[in-house]
Amino acid sequence: AEDTGLRVELAEEDDGKKSSIALKLWIEDPRKLKGKYRESGAIEFTFDLEKEVPEGVAQEMVESGLFQESDVKAVGKSIRDRVSLIRWRRERAMSAEE
């Protein structure tokens, strides 16, 4: 995978049922963050698997002043990659149950 210096992990155990899940975005290069957030290393947030799109959350982070507009695509992609993996794991678990 291309190295964006951003990594999204689950911030809680996935029970496979809830549509809203806690995620944590790790920022390897703090220079990606804006102003007063430069000393930060991670952003925790909830993501609704049914109602939300990763790019929308990335845009909210930019609008909240966390990231530069130029990083919106990289942030969105990092969230999308993790969300795809969560969905894939859930689908696989469901088909195993059947």
Binding site: E39, S40, A42, I43, E44, F45, T46, E60, L66
Partner: peptide
């Protein structure tokens, strides 16, 4: 300044955590 900040955006909360000390030492 090792305190998490909470940023609110349209009903969502972003919890911004500081860099762990172990990582600060590496930099």
């Amino acid at each position: 300044s090792a305190i998490a900040q909470v940023v609110h955006s349209a009903g969502r909360r972003f919890i911004v955590s500081p860099v762990p000390e172990s990582r600060l030492r590496e930099q």
